[in-house]
Nucleic acid binder design. Structure first.
Length: 263
DNA sequence: GCGACAG
DNA sequence: ATCTTGTCGC
């Protein structure tokens, strides 16, 4: 199956249409047995205002693919800012699955042409995430994203979107609920309840630490609901967020602070 | 029509 | 996400 690249310079309606077009490609059975996964990746994004992109690294393959769809005509058609003052800063960390040690960290900056709209997050953060992924030397066997997978209005959240575009199995681990209903899980680490949307099982409400708010885990692509939850739980150390996402967040925050200072 | 609403 | 100090709890 080829990579279904599309433009990210789209209107909100086109974005929803893209999600409906691609959701059928999501594979909800465990594609990989994370027992054999060597490297695990985690991604997180923060935003910069009025900080020029000083990237020196050549554009990644993902960016090239996206550029072909980035014609001025499309920007015009989508009625978006010619030169946004806000850019997304994405960081990807790669951990050794066996030891949990940090193997690689990369980052990329991309202009933001899309506003934050619940359900359309990937159109805001996607370009930066894809650009960062393209700079990796160590290719992760699984990616963990800070957002939803199929626990989404159209069953195609950030984790699913990135998973389909890159081919890397993925899981979404959101800090709060986007949609669906669930019972309150027990207060002990490891307790969980089903997250359902329109009567369908789409994820888990998982307690990753004793007495802390739960996280919402759902398959991105290549995972079953149970598999996604087991995977996230296996990535949890002593914090609420699983290590891949927690570390990625830690690094973007530090990098952002650094970039702002050097400006 | 009235709420809900990843980051 | 982002703007922000101290503060309560394990």
């Amino acid at each position: 199956m080829e990579c279904p690249f599309h433009s990210f310079y789209v209107s909100t309606e086109e974005a929803k249409e893209i999600q409906r077009d691609l959701r059928g490609r999501v594979e909800l059975s465990n594609t990989i047995s994370f027992k054999d996964v060597e490297f695990i990746g985690g991604a997180d994004v923060s935003f910069l205002t009025a900080v020029p992109d000083s990237s020196e690294v050549p554009a990644a393959d993902y960016v090239h693919a996206l550029d072909s769809a980035h014609s001025p005509e499309r920007k015009q058609q989508a009625e978006m800012e010619p030169e946004p003052s806000v850019s997304a800063l994405a960081v990807i960390v790669v951990l050794d699955a066996a030891t949990g040690s940090l193997v690689e960290t990369v980052h990329a900056q991309a202009p933001v042409y899309f506003p934050y709209i619940p359900g359309l997050l990937s159109f805001r953060e996607g370009p930066a995430v894809l650009a960062a992924l393209g700079k990796l030397k160590t290719f992760p066997g699984v990616m963990c994203y800070d957002g939803c997978g199929i626990a989404h209005p159209r069953g195609f959240g950030l984790a699913s979107h990135m998973g389909i575009l890159t081919g890397i199995p993925s899981v979404g681990c959101a800090k709060s609920r986007l949609c669906g209903t669930h019972d309150e899980p027990g207060w002990e680490k490891g307790n969980w309840t089903e997250l359902r949307f329109k009567k369908k099982l789409v994820g888990s409400c998982l307690r990753t630490r004793d007495n802390v708010r739960p996280v919402f885990v759902s398959p991105g692509n290549g995972f079953s609901v149970d598999g996604a939850r087991d995977f996230v739980m296996a990535c949890v150390d002593k914090y609420r967020l699983p290590e891949p996402t927690r570390l990625a967040h830690k690094y973007v925050t530090a990098l952002k602070k650094e970039l702002i200072t050097h400006t």
